[in-house]
Design a protein around this nucleic acid. Structure first.
Lengths: 222, 222
DNA sequence: TGCCCTCTTTTGAATAATCAAAATCACTTA
DNA sequence: TAAGTGATTTTGATTATTCAAAAGAGGGCA
């Protein structure tokens, strides 16, 4: 049966796998991501393999089957539409919607989701800039560059803020680092592990390497 | 722990108890309402009693404690606000929202619920005319008269449609029997077990006793 | 080659919720 | 008051998910 636990595992496997699409996902990574002890992950993965959602190589790792990936994308779609809805229609802060959507994604029906999607005019990205998979299970795979990799003097706009930690998101929001915001890179010092950018409103922000990696950007075209 | 199963039991106990507020609710009634075998209800009720949510008299029956009633009212509040939201904001049909709310009521946070409530301007009744408990756990206890008890020649308005069956709700909607609609009782024949009413738009509708019992009315004042 | 370290799997146990079926209780009714 | 009836409780099992801790596998290094 597809319980919400199964949905969470499959979603997490998908997300983890994205970071290393070529390799099998090791058990330990999954266990950590799911916040369970390794034995639990092993047990669960066996059940997922029996349901045909993952391919499992003992002591090797796992990989989603096509069916598993479709399920993951549907869960992700629900999650991201909900996040958008909570921000745009209900006016919640983007720093808090991840948690809310985490629960609701297992409870909304396709019908309700469709209404939400329609009411928002079918957004393609959620408030953090993550692409929303289509109802058919397609997702855009545009490669984005981390702010930390930009060359000094170049301009770009924020495309995605890849962190769901509420504190970081509040920090980003307070500093105007929202998807769509344009800026240029003033300086980048690899020794200091810091980059400084200037927004359109002349405000400058300096980020350490860790933070700069979480801001994914799109080169300004034109 | 307050799982959604616990919430469902407590809500159902509350609802069943309303039909006979003076007596203890017998196990069998609860088991039937929850769609489980009697033994399951017994086991669950013991757990609820341990959590202080119900008073349990073996072979006698059960009754919610104050805490249990407060929990039931909070679940009911979530359910009814959700129903209203699904109809008013997302445009679902009133015949289908009960099922949807049944799942969502265990997943929405108080924060999201508060936003929904606010967005709708804090309705006091849900689309079926059921009163929405306040956040503090108060609920209006207005005694309504079933349409089947009205005297011929009198006028009233529909206050509540006390059935969550989608087919009946669709029937009611199609015939204009929605909360707020005014009508007068043309005839009532106890032998024929039928009543005939006339709506403001001159349309007449004849209902059998069973259906007429589900339409709760409020005497027209003025 | 053998030991060690890390990761993974196995084993045994717990909790929540359920069912099927046997046992028990309480209440009529003859 | 004994038997029967219907509701309720008990007992034994099952499924899903989890943890703790023991056991096992594999690779690196001395």
């Amino acid at each position: 049966m597809i319980t919400s636990t199964v949905e969470n595992y499959v979603k997490q496997i998908y997300l983890q796998q994205q970071e290393n699409p070529a390799d099998l996902l090791p058990m330990g990574k999954l266990a950590t991501a799911m916040n369970v002890v390794p034995g639990t992950a092993t047990a669960m993965v066996k059940a997922l393999a029996d349901s045909g959602l993952v391919d499992y190589e003992p002591r090797g790792g796992i990989r989603l089957t096509h069916g598993g990936e479709q399920l993951a994308l549907h869960v992700l779609r629900r999650h991201r539409i909900l996040e958008s809805f909570l921000v745009e229609i209900l006016g919640l802060d983007w720093s808090e919607v991840h948690e809310e959507a985490e629960t609701l994604e297992h409870a909304v029906s396709d019908k309700v989701l469709e209404r939400m999607d329609h009411l928002m005019n079918r957004p393609q990205y959620d408030p953090h800039g993550d692409p929303i998979p289509t109802a058919k299970g397609q997702i855009s795979h545009i490669r984005l560059m981390p702010l930390s990799d930009m060359a000094p003097g170049t301009s770009a706009q924020v495309a995605r803020v890849a962190d769901q930690d509420a504190a970081f998101l509040r920090f980003a929001e307070k500093n105007g680092l929202l998807p769509g915001v344009k800026f240029s890179l003033i300086s980048s010092d690899s020794q200091a592990d810091a980059v400084t950018i200037r927004l359109r409103n002349k405000q400058t922000i300096t980020l350490g390497g860790k933070a700069a990696e979480k801001i994914l950007v799109r080169k300004k075209t034109g």
